[in-house]
Design a protein around this nucleic acid. Sequence first.
DNA 1: CTCGTAACGCACAGATCCTGGCCTTAGGGG
DNA 2: CCCCTAAGGCCAGGATCTGTGCGTTACGAG
Lengths: 178, 178
Amino acid sequence: MTAESTPRRRTGGRSAAVLASIRKAVEELISELGSDAITIPMVAERAGVNHSSIYRRWGDARTMINDLATYRLDPERSLPDTGDVRSDLAAWARELISHYSAPVNAAILRGGAAAAGESESDCLRDRRAEAAAFAARSGGTFSGDEVIDRVVAPIIYRVIFLPWTLSEINVQAYVDEL
Amino acid sequence: MTAESTPRRRTGGRSAAVLASIRKAVEELISELGSDAITIPMVAERAGVNHSSIYRRWGDARTMINDLATYRLDPERSLPDTGDVRSDLAAWARELISHYSAPVNAAILRGGAAAAGESESDCLRDRRAEAAAFAARSGGTFSGDEVIDRVVAPIIYRVIFLPWTLSEINVQAYVDEL
DNA sequence: CTCGTAACGCACAGATCCTGGCCTTAGGGG
DNA sequence: CCCCTAAGGCCAGGATCTGTGCGTTACGAG
C-alpha cells in the first residue's frame, strides 16, 4: 500500500477552544478533588462540552488526565543555551521548580504519577529527553540518568510528597554534584 | 490465641476469612489495574463476597484501599544496625527497592502519590524518620534531607515513573555520594 | 449448650457512566 | 469559492455502580 492520505488533523479555531476549555476544567477539578475522583461527565459539564466528545477523544478519564498532564510544560520551548552547560542546567532546574510550585501543576503531576504504570504513559518523558540533551552537551562528564537521579528526582519527589519544602531547594548544590 | 480486648467486635472465623479474601482481591486488582480503576463490585466478585458487605464496612473504594494498603511496610521492623552506618544505609536502601519491586507495592505507592496533597501524607513519613535516624548516627557527615535527596528520591522516582529500571540501580553509588 | 447480636448474603431501586448512531458545523486544501 | 471530512453536539439504550431494607448465619460470651 502506498502512503495513506495524510492524517490531517484539525488544530485551529473551534477544536482548539474546546480543548482549552476541557483542559481548564480538568485542572480545576484535579486541584479541587484529586485526580482519582474525576469523571468524564463531570469534566464535560464544567467545560460546557458534550461528554461524547471527551469519550471519543480519550476513551477514559485516566488517559485524558495523563495526556493533559504531559502537555503542561510546553515541549516546544527552547532550552537555555548560553554555552555554559552548568548554568544552563541550573536555569532549567529552576524553571522546573518554578513550574511545579503552582499547586495546580503539582496536582496534575500527582495525577500523572497515579496513571503511570508498568508500561509507558510517562508524563515526564520530555524531561528525560531534555536531561539526555544536556548530558550530550556535557561531553561525557555526566549521563542523562545522572541528571535524573541527582536533579530531577529530588525535585519531583518534593513536588509530590513535600511541596512546602520546594522553596528550600538549592539548585546549585544539585548541579555541582554532577 | 485470641488476645482481644475489644468488647464486642467479631474478629475471628468467618469474618477474618472474608477480610483476608477481600484484601487479597484488592492487592491483585491494584497491581493489575492501578489503584484508581478499582470498583467495589469488582473486588466483591473476585473475593467471592457480596458487595454489600464491602459497602457497609468501608463505604467507598478510596477508604477501603487506604485502609488495606496502609501497613504494607511494617513501621515496627528494625533498621539494620551493624555499627557501620554506610553498609546499614545500603542495606536499608536495598530493602526499600526490594519492597517496591513488587508491582502491588509500587501501585500502592502511586495511589499514595495521587492522594498526597498540601499536607504531609503518611505513606512515606516513616521513611523520612528513618532517614533522619541514619543522619543522627552519621555524626554530622550528612543530614536527613541529604539521605532523602540522594537515596530515597531517586528510588521512589524510579518506582513511580520508571519501574522497569529498578533492577539497574546501584545502591552503593547512591550511598557513596554522601 | 444457649442466647444476643455483629456480620454476611440476597434482592431491589436509584443514580451514574459508557457507547454508538445520526446529524450539524466548520477547518483546511484545491 | 467549493468540496471533503474531521470533529462536536444530541439522544437513546444498555451496562455498571452505589446504596439500602430484610432475613439468615454464626461468633463469642455466659
